[in-house]
């Protein structure tokens, strides 16, 4: 079964918005999301296939409404949802 990300050959997405020499990241948070994902991958919290899967199973409407790095944010958030801050002794 194909998912919403499988857009090859589909119609209706309009013209390509070419942006010559565009910056790699359009906001600081995009770079931070990128780095968080790489850090989790390197630490083995999840692997690249799991990350891709987490994005590709987003509900289609959410997937299409989200910007590229917003999708990454959704992926990292969902794959690390169970990672809670370590309790310090004085936290009780």
């Amino acid at each position: 079964m194909s998912r919403i990300n499988d857009v090859g050959g589909q119609s209706g997405f309009g013209l390509v918005a070419v942006e010559p020499d565009g910056p790699p990241f359009h906001a600081d948070w995009e770079a931070r999301v990128y780095a968080l994902n790489v850090a989790m991958l390197r630490r083995g919290v999840y692997n690249l296939d799991q990350f891709r899967d987490a994005i590709e199973r987003m509900p289609p409407a959410e997937y299409l409404a989200a910007s590229y790095y917003e999708r990454w944010l959704v992926g990292v958030e969902s794959l690390t949802a169970s990672a809670a801050p370590e309790l310090r002794p004085d936290d009780g």
Partner: peptide, 8 residues
């Protein structure tokens, strides 16, 4: 949260 969890 991820820094707090000691993951990065």
């Amino acid at each position: 949260r991820l820094i707090g969890a000691g993951l990065t």
